[in-house]
Design a protein around this nucleic acid. Structure first.
Lengths: 142, 142
DNA sequence: CCACTATCTGGAATTGCTCAATAAAAAGAG
DNA sequence: CTCTTTTTATTGAGCAATTCCAGATAGTGG
């Protein structure tokens, strides 16, 4: 199923901006809204910032994109949805890397005490220093 | 060890604002910067917003406070540091509840593929609906 | 009690994101 | 192919959280 079909299946209209956004996010590596906007403009010319935000929300709501928001960083988007994978975030440069779940499917989705909550998602973020930043010593690669 | 001693031990000066911040965060339930500022002012009169932010950073860096930042929410602080506990966040009202780790100590601290990262922390956030919001139907309690 | 420097103050600026009103364009009907 | 309806995009203002700057203040060690 291509992007246009996915959009239609989600009840969304197919526009150049949205196709470009999906493509940009797929190609990019956990881009933030600004990065997506820039990548999209490279593809289809002018697109307003609001259109990017709006589409990003629509696509996220439709389940075509996943939004992650590491502390201290603007929201980032990825196309890998539906599986239970987590993230490795570099404290120095902010790079986000996907990692599959250790325990299998939904590992930590069984908190000991749920305190009456209805839990629907377990989000795991590993914080550390990426290889590049380790090599660069204290220097930032951002 | 009282707060003043903890501050000194961390090489920080003891000021009324900082003691009030530590107390406010301890009493409060995962307060955000604004909530801390208000609680602090209740205790010691006027304190500038910057002093609050600055102190919060200093205290966090010193390990006296832990900062958590659930997606879509301003940063929140808690005094429970040093143990491997996680958080349950309500999608409706944003309330944060502490939960101990399922697997024991540092459960998820063993990602399958580390991709060369030096991991120093595993952060787990469970998303769901708190009991109060479930009872209130779709209504927000925020 | 002094000097030194961490800390606090006040104000302005930045960033990331949202709201509102109008114009444009995709989908379906005829 | 054209028209109509409804979604989507544009422009521009607005907001919240946080940070930066420069100068005043107050802990601390001596």
């Amino acid at each position: 199923m291509d992007d246009a079909a996915s959009l239609r299946a989600a009840g969304l209209r197919v526009t150049a901006a949205r196709l470009a956004i999906l493509d940009a996010v797929r190609q990019g590596d956990h881009l933030d809204a600004d990065g997506v906007a820039r990548a999209v403009r490279d593809r289809v010319g002018h697109v307003s910032t609001q259109a990017v935000y709006d589409s990003l929300h629509a696509l996220t709501a439709a389940g075509l994109l996943r939004r992650i928001e590491p502390a201290g960083s603007p929201a980032r988007y990825e196309t890998r949805v539906g599986d239970n994978h987590h993230h490795l975030v570099c404290r120095t440069c902010g790079t986000v890397t996907d990692i599959d779940c250790v325990v299998g499917e939904a590992p930590c989705l069984q908190p000991s005490q749920m305190h009456g909550y209805t839990v629907d998602e377990a989000e795991v973020v590993f914080w550390g220093i990426c290889p590049a930043c380790q090599a660069n010593g204290a220097e930032s690669t951002a």
